[in-house]
Design a protein around this nucleic acid. Structure first.
Length: 703
DNA sequence: TGGCCTCGAGTTCA
DNA sequence: CTCGAGGCCA
């Protein structure tokens, strides 16, 4: 053997060793730079000695050129599917049947997480990877050798020498969560299509004709069983086989374990379930397999699934469903938002039928079309969102969706958000934004309705019992056009409106059938409207819906000016003196009060008895906590969040919504979430409820 | 001018 | 809860 040949062989062994430690054992022993140097040396030597090239060289992972199409592969030992269990008693039945057949209840199971990836068969001849194939229909799959070779944790050559001459290893190719997220983040930045979930991403990456693409994707592999074995023997237990696979350099899921009987399996199911979110890969359940091969043989198969194994599934957090339509909604500011109407599907406990699509850009990025099968998830476990499209299920006639050019409610022209972008020397410049806006303003019934819903809402005027549906009817039948009209409603108006709504819906209220007209609800509603007449300036300001004036800005304005007259009289310079008010918000406020219609609405509100106390302008923060910024998170047992916020503000502190390094301290109640994590991350002090109450007590502000 | 830190606005369902 | 953008400070 020449020197070069010896050096090449040594380099290959060393590099494979590092690959194994890095990708399989997850315990690298040399820095990346040193590794790269070894690879470059090997590449150079191989280039200089083409006669020493070898397909199992670590330099040849992406060696193959693109294939024209996928060749079919027949699985000599079929790749079967597993039956599923969703409830504990199904697992108990499964185990009981086995216990009866084998004559003991103490059945050992080889247990492991069921990864959400793609089942793959790897064929090793004399320890060298010669073929990789997808499961396909179980009988016939596709030859994906060229892309499987690029998966770093798949060994091109087995370690040791005690492997069967022919060995088919089966397992899951998957995409670790971190890699998936990084990949999608990059795609999003470049405005490219994102993958719906790691499973789709793994499948899509492997089924690439060009191995370079698969090589660029963060794929990984776990082996979980063997298929064809010739020229060698395996142990008599599945767990022992897994140990062999590990020794041969194949990655096996580190969570794989042994469980005894149904109780042991269920315990394992719960232990893994508790850690589901923190595992570095997506799983959709755990798999239980009878460990002893002789018992597996005795149990045999039902149709296409083994009787000795079962997949116990966790409740899905993501579901697929059909997107039946894309509607557009008009917000109170005229903002147009596309909404996905979905075939109802339960996701993590609730039935989801609608999901926001945010804006046109988002639709284009996801490339969603009516008729598509989409993946729906509940973001932050609450709000449903469409995360992606299942490309294979697209109906052939599906066409890209386009935004309407006119408002679906009032027919007015839509404008690409004339949102203020920045102030320049020349004045305020406008720039296009992602949001489309309806130009209908007061003429758009949807905007009128949304504005009144906002006006009546809890954080604004807080008119109890005046819900969205009701306001919709009030506006539709012309009883209410501006918020001030709410304060002119009479009992007769409300009853008349209800009658017309019933006629329209074809419903007959119970009370009418009995021959009398119920009016208690109307009296209650009038009472609630009346109660809202006594209010505060900050609530009125917020309720009026001035652009960019939310709760916090309304409060700042109310404190600074003390009265509506003073505010309405202020010019832009005077407004900009208020902290956190810049040129843009100042311009919105001035424009609002310059509009005769708005002045009139305010006038009418007053005429109809809406009252708030005027105060002396307060232009400095005072109190023992002045200058401190506090963030509340979680649930406090002794008071509501709003109450806590008020107490803090009474002491001069500012209650902010998000944690940053400027936050003085965070008050964490029960079930505190991401804000608590952020506080810990930034080293912001955290008070628990007891410490918080203590602080209030010291300043005489405790409940 | 760029980079935080906030706030505003829109969103779902029981 | 998340995204986008206004305000402020360096």
């Amino acid at each position: 053997m020449s020197d070069a040949a010896r050096r090449i062989e040594a380099l290959r062994r060393e590099i494979e060793g590092h690959n194994h430690r890095y990708h399989v054992l997850d315990a690298p022993t040399i820095p990346d730079i040193a590794y790269d140097r070894l690879v470059r040396e090997l590449e150079a030597l191989e280039a200089a000695h083409p006669e020493l090239q070898s397909p199992d060289s670590p330099t040849r992972r992406v060696g193959a050129s693109p294939v024209a199409e996928f060749a079919e592969v027949r699985h000599r030992v079929p790749m079967l599917s597993l039956s599923n269990a969703f409830a504990d008693d199904e697992v108990e039945t499964f185990v009981a049947r086995i216990a009866e057949k084998v004559g003991t209840a103490e059945v050992d199971f080889s247990v492991e997480p069921k990864l959400d990836g793609l089942a793959i068969s790897l064929l090793y001849e004399d320890g060298v990877l010669v073929r990789g194939a997808t499961r396909g229909d179980g009988e016939t799959g596709e030859d994906v050798t060229h892309s499987v070779r690029t998966v770093r944790s798949v060994p091109l050559r087995l370690r040791g020498d005690d492997w069967p001459r022919t060995l088919e290893v089966r397992g899951e190719v998957y995409m670790p969560r971190a890699g998936f997220e990084a990949m999608n983040a990059q795609a999003r930045e470049r405005g490219e299509k994102v993958f719906a979930n790691p499973r789709n991403a793994a499948a899509g990456s492997l089924r690439q004709l060009d191995p370079k693409i698969a090589a660029s994707r963060p794929l990984a592999f776990f082996a979980y069983s063997v298929g064809l074995v010739e020229g060698g023997a395996l142990p008599d237990r599945h767990t022992a086989t897994l140990a062999h696979l590990r020794a041969w350099g194949l990655p096996v899921c580190p969570e794989a374990d042994v469980a005894v009987g149904a109780a042991g399996c269920l315990d394992y199911f719960r232990r893994i379930g508790a850690r589901r979110d923190t595992l570095p890969y997506e799983i959709d359940g755990v798999v239980y397999k009878v460990d002893r091969y002789d018992w597996q043989q005795a149990l045999g198969f039902v149709s296409r699934a083994p009787r000795w194994a079962i997949a116990h599934k966790y409740p899905a957090r993501e579901e697929m469903t059909v997107l039946e339509a894309i509607d557009v909604q008009v917000g109170r500011t005229g903002a147009i938002t596309p909404v996905a109407r979905l075939k109802p599907v339960p996701v993590a406990g609730v039935v989801v039928t609608n999901a926001t699509l945010h804006n046109e850009d988002q639709i284009r990025r996801l490339d969603v079309r009516v008729g598509d099968t989409v993946v729906v998830r509940r973001a932050g476990d609450v709000i449903p969102e469409v995360v992606g499209v299942v490309a294979e299920r697209r109906p052939p006639d599906a066409t890209p969706w386009t935004m309407p050019t006119t408002c679906p409610v009032c027919g007015s022209r839509l404008e690409r958000g004339k949102k203020v972008a920045r102030q320049t020397k020349a004045g305020i410049e406008y720039e296009d934004s992602a949001v489309l806006t309806c130009t209908g303003g007061l003429f758009c019934a949807a905007q009128v309705r949304e504005r009144i819903i906002h006006f009546a809402s809890r954080r604004a005027m807080d008119i109890e019992g005046l819900g969205d549906r009701f306001i919709e009817d009030l506006v539709e039948f012309g009883f209410v056009e501006t918020p001030a009209d709410l304060y002119a409603l009479t009992l007769d108006d409300l009853l008349a409106m209800k009658r017309r709504a019933d006629e329209r819906d074809g419903t007959t209220p119970e009370t009418v059938k009995k021959g009398k007209v119920a009016s208690k609800w109307a009296e209650n509603l009038l009472g609630a409207i009346d109660a809202s007449r006594a209010t505060t300036l900050e609530r009125v300001l917020f309720a009026l819906g001035i652009r960019d004036v939310g709760e916090s800005t309304a409060k700042a304005l109310a404190r600074w000016f003390g009265s509506l007259e003073a505010l309405a009289a202020a010019d832009e310079a005077a407004l900009m003196a208020v902290p956190d008010i810049g040129p843009i918000v100042a311009a919105h406020v001035v424009a609002f009060f310059a509009e005769p219609h708005n002045r009139e609405v305010v006038e009418r509100l007053r005429e109809r008895g809406v009252r708030w106390p005027d105060q002396a302008p307060q232009r400095t923060a005072e109190g023992p906590l002045a200058g401190q910024t506090v963030v509340l998170t979680g649930t406090l047992s002794s008071m509501g969040r709003d109450d806590a916020k008020e107490r803090l503000e009474a002491l001069g502190a500012k209650a902010a919504g998000s944690v940053s390094k400027k936050t003085t301290f965070v008050v964490a109640g029960a079930e505190a979430g991401s804000k608590l994590d952020k506080a810990n991350e930034l080293g912001v002090p955290v008070l628990d409820e007891e410490a918080f109450l203590d602080l209030l007590r010291r300043h005489g502000a405790a409940p």
